[in-house]
Amino acid sequence: METVLQPIGRAFVSGLETTGRLSIFAIMAVTYCVRPPYYPRLILRQMIEIGFYSLPVVGLTAIFTGMVLALQSFTGFARFSAESAIPNVVVISITRELGPVLAGLMVAGRIGAAMAAEIGTMRVTEQIDALTTLSTNPMNYLVAPRLIAGLAMLPLLVLVADIIGVFGGYLVSIYKLGFNPEAYLRNTMDFVEPLDVISGLVKAAAFGFIIALMGCYHGYNSKVGAQGVGQATTNAVVSASILILVFNYGITELFFAR
């Protein structure tokens, strides 16, 4: 009996421990985001890294998602002669769900991993200790700029993803399924509401925060050695991805459940 219960108890306790440690880290990180000194140069660099360099990945994801969405809805809706609903399906799916979630997951893979690897390497090679000995708080210098940049850039990326995604659906509908371009666009614009886009952008901001937080947390607490940094990188991506999906449900519930 003991042999069965012990691992369960241990997993439970360590789960609680991790949650506690992560919460403390998150609160501290947010405090340091608003507490001076600020590092505008570093924030800008992270913004470029997250916002600009993720554009190709996010753009490609969005355009193919929009395209396949139109194609799949057509095969389904044609059976009920409901092809005219395709523009609506595409724009709602992209702005509410697929834009933020897929962009979030792609950026988690790209940026979350890079943050964890960079900060983890800095931890392992004592660069974080060196920062402290040079009268610089690593939370201020390393973590805060990444959180701010994540929070600010993900909504912008998702806005771009929304536009490109809708354009993907448009391309397939016009050139493959023979829709009328004007009717398609009018249909899209008539149907989409501000709340659809806004809810997606709120999600994006939350996801940006989660990605940066996970990257920094796991990197900051990285174990010694190449294996430690590797583990930190994996943990950052996996935990960010799962949290994105969980929070996605939570935020959807907040916005649309009546």
Binding site: Q127, D129, A130, T133
Partner: peptide, 19 residues
């Protein structure tokens, strides 16, 4: 702590330079 830290300089084993 920061005030006291200003008295210190440290040479780390692996140099710990910022890449």
């Amino acid at each position: 702590r920061r005030r006291v830290m200003r008295k210190f300089g440290m040479l780390f084993q692996g140099a710990a330079l910022f890449d």
